[in-house]
């Protein structure tokens, strides 16, 4: 199976690695081919073997996940990177994006988000965790309110409603209940909205975050 994504797993906790590995290996199209227990080892392994995706803990000894990500993406033709973290600060998320990562998965929803995030990453898309998405949309709305940003494309009335609810921090399930539509439809609106706001693609997102002052360049 040559179209399987080859994954390197880096986390200093062997049990976490084992848990993640079992889940990924059980998912079609994803296969863990190497493991590292710190940032430096992850960098070395990425160079030595053919890896499509690196999943890395943000906090690791010897070299943190962020440092390792910077190191890995400083080379051409580098693999995609997904950060795994306990912390939901937007600052970590944007720092991860700046370091070249495609996504950021919170450990408290790792069981739920990990496989989705891996699939998004190997497709070349970014993965936003729910909290950061609402923060982004909120800052976008604030910019519009201050007259700084002009909406790049007009949203439909439904999408407008969804945007407001996302900005207030509601989950897809809550939004679905509030608007009496299915969760699937909410997800579709959400994807469209992010696409229209230019937040689907990682470079766009980083550029936006820097413009909005969410990270320093």
């Amino acid at each position: 199976m040559s179209d399987e994504a080859r994954i390197l797993l880096a986390d200093d906790h062997a049990l976490v690695r084992r848990g993640v590995r079992l889940i990924l290996d059980a998912s079609p199209g994803l296969r863990v081919v190497a493991e590292a227990s710190d940032g430096a080892e992850a960098v070395a392994l990425t160079r030595a073997s053919d890896i499509d995706l690196v999943i890395m803990d943000v906090a690791m000894p010897r070299m943190t996940g962020l440092q390792a990500a910077r190191e890995i993406t400083s080379h051409d033709a580098h693999p995609y990177i997904l950060m795994l973290s306990m912390f939901d600060n937007e600052q970590y998320f944007f720092e991860a994006l700046k370091a070249g990562a495609s996504g950021y998965v919170l450990k408290s929803v790792v069981d739920h988000d990990l496989v989705t995030a891996c699939r998004a990453a190997v497709r070349g898309e970014s993965f936003l965790y729910p909290g950061v998405e609402s923060a982004l949309v909120r800052s976008y709305l604030e910019r519009i309110a201050r007259g700084e940003a002009i909406p790049t494309s007009v949203l439909t009335a439904r999408e407008d409603e969804v945007v407001k609810l996302i900005a207030e921090g509601h989950s897809s399930k809550e939004i679905a209940r509030a608007l009496v539509i299915s969760v699937k439809t909410v997800e579709r609106h959400r994807a469209n909205v992010l696409e229209k706001l230019g937040m689907r693609d990682r470079t766009e997102l980083t550029r936006y975050a820097i413009r909005a002052g969410l990270v320093e360049p």
Partner: peptide
């Protein structure tokens, strides 16, 4: 440890 619990329960 809690992360491991989460992952194992998912499995």
């Amino acid at each position: 440890s809690l992360t491991v619990v989460l992952l194992s329960t998912k499995r």
